[in-house]
Amino acid sequence: MRICHEGKWSCNDWMHFPTLLLTLLLLCQVSPVSGKGPSVDNRPPATAELKFAKTAFERSRAGYVGLEWNTLEAAAEYVVTDQRGQAVYRGTVPIAFVSGLPDGQHTFWVSATDADGEVLAVATEPAILNVQHWPLSLALSLFGVGLLVFLTLVAILFFGARQATQRDRQLAASDAAAGEASE
């Protein structure tokens, strides 16, 4: 099949190379792919025990964490709760993202339930996260640096644009004067 026609497209020999490449790409699209993507296909094999992939985290400076655990074959849903028993995640994917946490130690548990809502398993060990936000003094200092850079940039743009406009006007005026003189 031709993808272009003489007279309508510049259909020279060079088109064969990209056409081949594109065909290969389309083939890749319908072929099984073995690469590692961020989908859940890479989950570990299911076991009877529910376990966080990581139970101790480095100190969090921004108050968020990603929790991950193994899958259970019969699980219809996973629920993550915090130390107060509050659910912070409910879903079918064995990964939970929790954010907006204040300073302090935060403990998380995960449980798996079946389609009838019966609890199948509870994590044997909780995941523990310590949150210690950056010092406010550092944050405000960097805010100040940012403000300074921003204001300097605005000033440079403003004065630069003004100078350029003035130069253009002067050039236009001198061109006009030269034109009049030659006439």
Binding site: R61, G63, G100, P102, W134, A139, L140, L142
Partner: peptide
């Protein structure tokens, strides 16, 4: 109640990220 830092004016990492 649940995610107080998300509404906090003094969220250090967020303040740092503004001009960034």
């Amino acid at each position: 109640v649940e995610r107080p830092m998300l509404l906090s004016v003094f969220f250090p990492a967020a303040i740092m990220s503004l001009f960034n």
